[in-house]
Amino acid sequence: MLIKIRRRSEVKPSEITPESVYWNRRRFMQGVAGVGAGLALPGLSHAAAVSSAANPYPDVPQGRVPPAWFDAQRAEIKWRSVVPEDPKRDEVAPFAAATQYNNFYEFGGSKDDPARYAHTLKPEPWEVVVDGEVNHGGRIALEDLVSPSQLEERIYRLRCVEAWSMVIPWLGIPLADVIRRADPTRKAKYVRFETLYDPQQMRAQDSAFGLIDWPYVEGLRLDEAMNPLTLLAVGMYGRVLPNQNGAPIRLVVPWKYGFKSIKSIVRISLVETQPVNSWQKLQPSEYGFYANVNPQVDHPRWSQARERRLPNSLFSPNRIDTLMFNGYEDEVASLYQGMDLRQHY
């Protein structure tokens, strides 16, 4: 017998806004925003109308031409498969905020460097090496890695270790699907991820002043990787990932600090021993392997008890309490039973 227990982050049928109401609200908001931001310009709204049937984010620029497999999958996307329980607290960040203010040290140390310099990244064609303790490994084209699964939209809170956060609608597939297809051997205990290393495409990998040892490496315990929340994202806001957000494929682990969600992945290895992730290697007293969002364990240089939800404004800094496991406690707390999270930060 299958008993399905609804998780807190799962959407109740009653919570889903009827499509007509959704569109009306969006149109109203666009009208309001358009007065100031010029969104109501005839040219722009026309361009938006073309794709609006299959896309809940008609006002978001589409960026590069999406690959054929992405377009083919678009009609099948399972929209809003996971949404925040409290949409008022967790309002989706504007696309501009999520794409022009982020960390991607391969392109520089400032928050606006990724948006400025990531145009040199070539996200297509792209291959991911799946190797290590697997029976079905190899060099796999992005399309073949992703297409066997259905794309889902997951609206997750993203909590940066620097004590700010945004709510972002990702498009992706469960990492568990990819791992199952690779068929791990019994020896596989951890998953190790690696970002592209190519200073021609990622300018700061050449910098003499960068402290990170490239390529960027991240890791998860196998049970964390298999958790249904763990997502391999290929898009956001209903479109392909912009380069600065980790095109063409990145990890999203919503209960961990943002740096665990490695970008522009070229290698996924199933391994026996715990990988050393880049930040841990750089400063082990500040960054651990687990990096679970935890308001009780401070970063040595700042408090993690609260966070600034972005975008904010000068006189409403939007400081909110940080939740244990970033609010995904019901789904993931069992993974860490009996562990001292102060020690395994």
Binding site: A93, A97, Q100, R308, P311, S313
Partner: peptide
């Protein structure tokens, strides 16, 4: 820049 909304999503930190 802050007054014109050109200081990004976190104007306080920008300043």
């Amino acid at each position: 820049q802050v007054m014109q909304g050109q200081a990004g999503p976190e104007p306080g930190r920008y300043l």
